[in-house]
Design a protein around this nucleic acid. Structure first.
Lengths: 404, 404
DNA sequence: CTATATTATTCGCGCCCCGAACTAAATAGG
DNA sequence: CCTATTTAGTTCGGGGCGCGAATAATATAG
């Protein structure tokens, strides 16, 4: 039975059936390519005749190309279909406090070109600069057709106004990325919170997530973000504000947080929190001063990871503390939302050998009756934030409508 | 754009467009009745011709009847359409620890008949007895056609197996309601957690929820349950286990909870918690013993409400404590999920004059940047749990597919 | 009685899925 | 080498359904 939305609707027209089936077929090609029309018909349940018609359309619109002949034991050899790698594609922009990455990807979300710029501190100046950079970037790859631009932002995005509401680690408030970028490039722009982008990337591109309809991406950096996919859909909340579990208070008498509350999850389990804990531990006993890469005496989170790897006792301690609190917060998510998968994104995954078992233990202790929720570290190399921006743009054309 | 589900799909057939539009029209009739075909065409965006065809079908299938003529200043008078009140309807069953209610409702979810039985302590015996009772109940209303049976249960329901997994306040584990009831009555049975049923009831039948796509029903009784609707859909989690925010720990050093953890929300804010707090307060100072209705010296939650109404200082104190913690837990929900509406269900709403302002204050203090989330008490008279079971059955036939 | 407004139905067209028949192309085996 | 068999993919007629224009059915105003 098709899932029902009681509050908003769009009526079906004659073309709606084709639209639905096109998306289903396009998504099947994406996930199973190279694949024959016959296989697609079998997997989709559509008639071979219908499938041929849809394939013809997709080929005409250059979404899909015909490839090599397949090999089967008997009978006519199938002609494989695959996504058109030449029909590039999508611009993805990942804005982070220090560095912003601009990338070009094809329909398979393979990155063709990539460049980084420093993120200016003033949002207006930065948006202007970004527009020019992207414009130049688009020109330098002028041979291709562009589907659109996806932007991942380290803060909350309002769904209706399509503006960045607040980015705590940049101190930005109410910034319009969509308008300026669209004017600069002439392409349509989709913006999304970084944690949501990671969740999208996971469900789109990761084999771990095959068949998964409920997952949470937890991004751990200066703060903690959570991107929630439930029933196969990104949860946005009333104005896109859902997912601020990083600012749920674990202890109302805990240390103060930038958000005004006390004892928020990210006050215990973020990179910044771990750096603070390390500073406290070393200032308490000044006998020992390990080498750190900054001129000030504040280490970076990478320093702590490195020191822990070298066996520094205090670094190991604060990492274990971080792991403990990551487990505490994830227990909350598991108890409340019961996802089948939690993906952890952040530098801390580099120390997963040390961190992972503690997280697992805490969750096992605190959610004994919880369902089997797998916890996996995201691969940093896959650039989840950036890859999510590609999914953000492509999802308009792929995938099947909700079913129950 | 239609919302996309990347992991499960059902292809569209020729009849799919009609199926979608039928549901939209049926839901429009439900919410706007009595309403003319012309109005339906305008509100749905369908052509008058299409709408007439759909109306004809709905009338033929007896979902809808033609009613009186409307009055407009000029032109042909419209013939109103309305849901067929004669085509009853739905059996709703609300299982609660002490009492189970069986009701018959028409398509408008108006209750036609209702009876209560005591809930047996042994689940097997109870299911058997319930089956016989429902069978008799169905027979006594034999003139009508039955759409199905909806059951609200005070515990977690597994979506796949369609069984009650665990009902803590009854001590039941892994009970099959669906199978026995279907065999006894020959009708299809849908089971759902009570908090989810309340959330459904709210979004289906309450005017407060017009246009709301993100709401949470918080049921407060012996424990605390949360039913979450996001993007217009009930969130079920990987196996229907979502919504156990009542067992999220607010304080890891808090009092132990039945679930094995410490300091769970429901240890602070449930009816049972409030009774415990009251007992402690009175045992500490034995000077004063107010009248309570139980033979033991443990008051019921109703006793505490009554005593607070009479000005009993300790009763007021523990109610205010309960209100405080209700606010704390709801802050967590608002921060994490950002619903536009939270509906509170439970006896505590009778003291909303006292409790409401405290809840609002705590939320305002803890979620200063949170979006406007309205908090409203559910009307007890509307029987939200029971009414939700009606929606549970009817939702198969009403409503529009998800859109973005 | 006529012009106008509004509701509702009729009918031809086009989109699109289905399913049966058919074409295409490969292998197995005599 | 030739034929039966198997699998891939296309063609085509039929039916469901939405669109939109024309038409029928009523109502009021003047």
């Amino acid at each position: 039975m098709r899932k029902i939305d009681l509050t908003s609707f769009r009526v079906a027209r004659s073309e709606t059936a084709r639209d639905i089936n096109r998306r289903i077929v396009l998504d099947l090609i994406r996930t199973r390519q190279p694949v024959s029309r016959a296989d697609l018909a079998r997997h989709s349940g559509l008639q071979p005749s219908t499938l041929s018609a849809i394939a013809e359309q997709l080929i005409a619109e250059e979404w899909v190309t015909e490839g090599a002949l397949g090999h089967i034991p008997r009978g006519r050899k199938p002609r494989f279909l695959q996504l058109n790698g030449q029909r590039a594609a999508v611009i993805g922009i990942n804005v982070r406090p220090a560095i912003t990455t601009i990338a070009l990807a094809d329909l398979n979300a393979r990155f063709i070109a990539q460049q980084s710029i420093t993120t200016a501190t003033d949002p207006q100046i930065f948006v202007k600069e970004l527009g020019q950079r992207v414009k130049a970037f688009v020109k330098s790859n002028a041979q291709v057709f562009y589907e659109g631009i996806g932007v991942s932002l380290p803060g909350r995005v309002d769904r209706e106004s399509q503006r960045l509401v607040f980015a705590p680690n940049l101190g930005w408030r109410d910034v319009d990325f969509k308008g300026p970028l669209e004017r600069a490039t002439g392409l349509s722009v989709e913006i999304e919170n970084a944690a949501n982008a990671c969740a999208l990337a996971e469900i789109w591109f990761n084999n771990h997530s095959n068949g998964v309809r409920d997952l949470i991406a937890v991004t751990v950096a200066e703060g903690i973000g959570t991107g929630i996919i439930a029933n196969g859909q990104l949860i946005s909340g009333s104005t896109g504000m859902a997912g601020e579990f990083g600012h749920v208070s674990l202890n109302e008498d805990g240390p103060p947080c930038k958000c005004g509350n006390r004892g928020c999850w990210e006050v215990y389990a973020s990179n910044s929190a771990t750096i603070r804990a390390y500073m406290q531990a070393t200032s308490n006993s000044r006998s020992h001063k390990p080498s750190i890469s900054q001129p000030s005496n504040e280490p970076t989170f990478e320093d702590i990871l490195r020191l822990a790897g070298q066996g520094d006792v205090r670094a190991v301690e604060v990492l274990e503390r971080m792991a403990y609190y990551l487990g505490v917060g994830m227990s909350m998510l598991i108890t409340g939302i019961a996802p089948s998968l939690i993906v952890l994104v952040g530098e801390v995954t580099r120390a997963w050998d040390r961190v992972g078992p503690i997280v697992q233990r805490v969750i096992a202790e605190r959610s004994p009756t919880a369902p089997m929720t797998r916890i996996i570290p995201a691969e940093e190399a896959a650039q989840p934030r950036l890859r999510g921006t590609i999914a953000l743009v492509l999802q308009k054309h792929f995938g099947a409508p909700s079913t129950a």
